[in-house]
Design a protein around this nucleic acid. Sequence first.
DNA 1: ATAAATTAAATTTGATACAATTTAATCACA
DNA 2: TGTGATTAAATTGTATCAAATTTAATTTAT
Lengths: 148, 148
Amino acid sequence: MQIPYDPLKLDNQLCFPLYVCSKEIVKRYKPFLDEIGLTYTQYITMMVLWEEKSINVKSLGKRLYLDSGTLTPLLKKLENQGLLNRERDPKDERNLIVTLTQKGVDLKKAAKGIPDKVRQCVQLSAKDIIKLYRILHKILDGIEENSS
Amino acid sequence: MQIPYDPLKLDNQLCFPLYVCSKEIVKRYKPFLDEIGLTYTQYITMMVLWEEKSINVKSLGKRLYLDSGTLTPLLKKLENQGLLNRERDPKDERNLIVTLTQKGVDLKKAAKGIPDKVRQCVQLSAKDIIKLYRILHKILDGIEENSS
DNA sequence: ATAAATTAAATTTGATACAATTTAATCACA
DNA sequence: TGTGATTAAATTGTATCAAATTTAATTTAT
């Protein structure tokens, strides 16, 4: 006698542990991000800006897989904190261009230690980190094709 | 000359693709879940109930990594849909016991095809599925130790 | 040149999520 | 036995998110 495979059993799901891991790890960032006054979404937004310095909302959303419904209020908050400026592109007023202020640039120094601190919370072998990284990007590549 | 490794570059993050994959895959469930009138969180809640038939909020939260702040309103909605009953445990009135109705039990048939449909959207080799499953559970095991 | 189509943000609505606090029930122990 | 500690839900406040609609700017096609 064998127990039949149930595709609707929670333990047989792949998405569920993915969903939980994502949430739990993001939660681990919180105490460190609190110190520099950012939420996780604000933090990944700042990461793009630390690379780009200046970018419009559309491109930012593409990098972060977020739309204006999330980004508009988030960017307004970062603007209120004095981390960036929001202004329309004179060449095409439909585009809103986001640019870091000096304060925004400087915040990177304060964030420097965060990735290491979270890595210590999570604990994963170097091999598993690489494997996981590759698989996740494979999924994202597959997803890009279908939609967007 | 070599470009120095920047731990704050978005492409060097592990959490970010995890966070995006989770959201994107959950999004893929939406059209299928819409058909049976559930959101993703409601769906995983129903999954536990299809296994357990009856469970209190505390245990449910432990299985799903959710707290009463999320579950209380969610369960009330499922109750309004006639999928479950909520009643206090007579032996310990602090506990709220959730029990599927017949309608809730029957919904499982309608959900049967969903895991396969989502798997087709995602596209991942059997090997990668197994690898990913193992790594995610390793992460969750490591997280269990630290907190909760 | 101008009406129609397209594009980018912003807005609105509904559903999560989490943290912190509150309420109610039960337990532990002096 | 009765008070303090603990526990389980519920509540409150803040931040995401997604989907759909709206607004404003630009582009395309006639």
